[in-house]
Computed example of a mutant assay.
Amino acid sequence: MSVNESITPEPILQLGLGFMASKTLLSAVELNIFTVLARGGRDRASIAAEVGLHPRSSADFLDALVSLGLLNRDDEGIYRNSPTAEIFLDRAKPSYVGGILEMANARLFGFWDNLTDALRTGTQQNEVTHTGAPFFATLSQDPVAWRNFLNGMNGVSTPLAGALASDFDWSGRQHLVDLGGALGAVPAAVLQSHPEMTGTVLELPPVRPVFEEFVARHGLSDRLSFHGGDFFSDPLPPADVYVMGQILHDWNLEQRQFLLRKAYDALPDGGTLIVYDAMIDDDRRHNTYGFMVSLNMLIDTEGGSEYTVADATEWLAEAGFSKVHSRPLIGGYTAIYATK
């Protein structure tokens, strides 16, 4: 068989071994590399001493981060964060998105080792696999894992929050409620740019202590409140805007339709429901990130998955919403705005 020199195995090998680069980043976040370097450039020995790197590993590890575009190293051997890492991977900055990476490192990385089992059985492969108890009830019993999970959800929501705050026309809106909004990244971003508004996060009661810490850090304790409850069984707090971000993908079709109808019934005329997720493109070919998140839902939930924009549009119309339109956000996410 003749060999076509323009076709090589390199893309396949890079993809198949991509977990190596992924774990290098996750370990760097765990070791606080980027937060240490946010305080100023350091040489290899100084970094190794502060974060606890072994002499055998330090050179290759730090230079691997250089090759991945996460660190820069000058001719004197001084390491500094890349501009992107400086903004998004320094724990001390409000723009920090490493919470989702911390959660991926502590939870998801190991569970993805069981993807083949999930594909064969259709059953989730996380903490619930071993306990049989509901996912959130199981996780909330471990304070460290619970905080890690909530910070992870906040990390992935932070850049989306800024996008939503600027993309949607909030004029004339007074109060928004984020349904299952974790620590409140979305309402925090909206309230900071719209001082006339107030907000509420409806979440499970164990979220409250971590939520209150987050809100206090952002100076919003007087405008952003916590409402403990379950959006399946409890009444929804009144609002003229509801947000369901990364919520529908946790549940099966019947549960999604129930939540959308419940939001429709609770909204006043002219009220809006904002749904955002890593929705799959309608042609089901292009949003690789959406497919990866959907496989993660297979591993991490009982019946969840991502869905197409067309699917969500249909469900919203069935729930009663008359004005429904979608807009791409950032990073493979889509927002759908549905008005009653």
Rank of each mutant, 00 (worst) to 15 (best):
I7G: 03
S193K: 14
V207E: 06
R39E: 11
D269S: 14
A92T: 11
A38G: 15
L62V: 06
D282N: 15
D178N: 02
D90R: 08
D178T: 01
P9G: 03
L191W: 01
A317C: 06
G110W: 03
F291H: 12
L267G: 04
N287L: 06
S171N: 13
L89D: 00
V186L: 11
T131K: 10
R42T: 00
S166P: 04
A49S: 12
G180S: 08
F291M: 08
S166L: 12
K93G: 02
A145P: 01
P206V: 05
H194R: 15
G184R: 07
L25Y: 02
A312F: 01
P9K: 10
V309I: 15
F321I: 07
D169C: 11
G99A: 05
A312E: 03
E196R: 10
L62H: 04
L37H: 02
D250I: 12
A161W: 00
D167W: 06
P143Q: 09
K23E: 12
L316Q: 04
L108C: 10
G219Y: 11
W112I: 08
V36T: 11
I274S: 01
D234K: 11
T35E: 12
G304Q: 10
V186E: 03
L316N: 04
F109T: 14
A21I: 09
V156L: 14
G228Y: 05
L160V: 10
F291A: 08
R147F: 02
D222Y: 05
F149L: 15
